[in-house]
């Protein structure tokens, strides 16, 4: 039996890890994105105490490594009486962390968004919510498309950190296969190829979306 036969025999482990990574990534990327949009919506309007606080929180996230946040939720929270399992703590940390980054990306685009469309929407009597959903957010999304793509790849890579807090994802699968059969090279080559595959799919998708943006004349300078 060659090493590759062993890998093939252990395919269930890899598939389980791969599926888990995909689920964690899809769920946390989606919810982080929604969280980012909600934060930018809440920041809409004149400066106030809570908004300054929110910006502070975003900046704190930007100066922390992801793993520290995961540690905080997984090892730190039980002290306060909240006990999360590794999976929930990991996904929660991904959502909060990348939500802050998405918010920062969108906020950056919001600051430089020309005021004309917003003023026009106000003149037409849009409420802040409708204006945000129909006028501001679509423009922000089309403009920040490449940055969002980058952030998604970073989010995918951060899922691997969860192996340290014992989540059974793709990297953990490779690690358990290699420690059972002592075939680290093949196990990790497979896993790295799978990560590569996901990120290439992401890049292609983002490029396709770029065509849509170009058609609407919103290509990011």
């Amino acid at each position: 039996m060659t090493e590759w036969d062993i890998i093939w025999a252990a395919r269930d482990d890899f598939l389980y890890g791969f599926a888990n990574t995909l689920v964690i990534f899809a769920l946390s990327a989606l919810l982080a994105f929604v969280l980012g949009c909600v934060i930018v919506y809440l920041l809409e309007g004149p400066k106030s105490g809570p908004r300054t606080l929110l910006r502070w929180l975003i900046n704190i996230m930007r100066t922390l490594p992801f793993l520290i946040l995961a540690y905080l939720l997984y090892y730190g929270l039980p002290t306060l009486g909240v006990r999360l399992d590794a999976w929930t703590a990991g996904v929660g940390a991904l959502i909060v962390y990348h939500g802050a980054y998405f918010a920062e990306l969108l906020r950056g685009a919001r600051v430089v968004l020309p005021g004309g469309t917003v003023e026009a929407a106000r003149a037409y009597g849009f409420t802040t919510f409708t204006m945000f959903m129909r006028i501001i957010l679509p423009q922000l999304l089309i403009r920040t498309r490449p940055l969002i793509g980058n952030q998604l790849v970073i989010c995918l890579k951060d899922t691997a950190f969860l192996t340290i807090i014992t989540v059974q994802e793709l990297t953990a699968a490779a690690n358990s296969v290699q420690s059972t059969y002592f075939i680290p090279l093949e196990a990790f080559v497979v896993v790295i190829a799978l990560y590569w595959l996901i990120s290439i799919c992401l890049e292609v998708t983002i490029k396709q979306l770029g065509r849509f943006g170009k058609k609407r004349g919103f290509e990011h300078a």
């Binding site: 790849v153 890579k157 951060d158 691997a160 192996t163 340290i164 690690n175 990790f188 790295i192 990560y195």
Partner: peptide, 13 residues
Amino acid sequence: LARATPLVTLVLF
């Protein structure tokens, strides 16, 4: 490849 591989995976590898 280097941009797509998570650091944790690379370190272990």
